[in-house]
Design a protein around this nucleic acid. Structure first.
Lengths: 228, 228
DNA sequence: GCCATGCTTCGCCGGTCCCCGAAGCATTCC
DNA sequence: GGAATGCTTCGGGGACCGGCGAAGCATGGC
């Protein structure tokens, strides 16, 4: 029973609105300062300081001091995976999903990869064309998929035997899988640095540029337009 | 911000010692009655009833009434995945891992598959022999692996294109991946019904029978003995 | 029909923990 | 050096939540 205490302790850290809000803000993979996180959570500096100290102590956050600022980020991909897992359960529960956060539902980052309708549509397109195969417990990129991705400028070095792996990640708003893992991260990075999508400051939501819609349509087919 | 409230709510449900204890007890995939869970958590019937009602309401548990008993089980594999994810983070944090629960660390069930030293050793053996390939974000069974598994009587119907998928699951006690997913479940079931491992009542720990050690050694090589 | 068992609801108590205001270091800029 | 900014520590007040005991429905066995 020693382990369930640890389970409860970690979950309790996430199970507090202010802390959850901070962790959610960090899910895009960036590092934020203590005061930015305090503002996000809607609490004062002292309370934020205490929360952040506890999260860091427990190994959920990594802290980096830079001058008189303290930058906080998720300590590891495992933490992001944990948060994704909780969100998947959290958003499966309520029968009625709020119509809010339309921008978030359309396109957002999920730690290091894309999520939302756009990401699901991209995954669907790649699956339909036999470029990737996704199952509940894993996914692979086929050789035609590798060629397609190379054409996009996405280079993912192979996994064990030269294969390309991609982890499926249950999209909490769409409730269908999108592409995560190394491939998801590379794809997201490519979309950002080609200017196809842009971060919307202050949120995890993403804006798809007009050029982005053109390029994505050309690469992934007309299906992605439905995410618009 | 609507989503972080849900995140906090779900995490808070897990973040309470009594509830975490109950969820932990259900991680072996079985269904237990309310009173059994109350005993496990070390609380009275009224408190347990309230907790279970909340967990069911939130969609973490599925309840099935059978006569005057109420059987509770995890509502879905997603819930188990969430709990695994939290455990992985929880057990990565504390630098000192208690020497307790030696039996749990050796071999246990993890929802529907095997975990602990034994499971990691089995995964290692299969990887070393090129029967499965595991990466952080996915895994596949090779054709030689499929033949090996068939020989064991483990039949897993193919994923998308006739491939066999196996999800890697970070072992919270060993901090290395073992085999989960459909393959993990099938392997675990096979070990149980051949009498190689037996459930130890009242815990998720597993006992490996003498015959089990012989059979596992023969199938997976001498490496598994080190888990003994 | 009656009792026993399993689970739930109600009312109350107690502890935990989360927040803020004020004051105290640390770092940088002028 | 002095002032401003960013963050932390301290102390106190308040709210939330979990636990038990007693009593109230259900279901099953005799």
């Amino acid at each position: 029973m020693v382990s369930t205490a640890a389970l409860a302790g970690t979950a309790a850290l996430v199970g507090e609105p202010a802390r959850a809000s901070m962790l959610g803000a960090l899910m895009d993979g960036r590092a934020l300062t203590a005061s930015e996180l305090a503002r996000t959570a809607g609490i004062g500096a002292p309370a934020a300081s205490a929360h952040l100290a506890r999260l860091a102590e427990a190994g959920l956050l990594a802290v980096e001091r830079q001058g008189r600022h303290r930058y906080h980020r998720l300590a590891s991909p495992a933490v992001a995976r944990m948060l994704e897992g909780i969100m998947a359960v959290a958003c499966a529960a309520p029968p009625r999903v709020g119509p809010r956060d339309a921008a978030l539902r359309r396109a957002r980052t999920c730690y290091d990869h894309l999520a939302g309708r756009l990401a699901v549509a991209m995954a669907d397109a790649m699956v339909a064309r036999g470029q990737v195969e996704l199952a509940a417990d894993g996914g692979v990129v086929t050789s035609s998929g590798a060629a397609f991705l190379r054409g996009l400028g996405v280079e993912v070095e192979g996994a064990p035997a030269g294969r390309l792996f991609c982890r499926p990640c249950l999209d909490w708003s769409e409730r269908r899988p999108h592409v995560a893992g190394r491939l998801g991260a590379a794809l997201c990075a490519r979309c950002l640095d080609r200017g196809w999508v842009r971060r919307i400051p202050g949120t995890r939501a993403l804006d798809v540029t007009p050029e982005g819609w053109r390029a994505l349509r050309e690469a992934f087919g007309p299906g992605v337009e439905e995410a618009r």
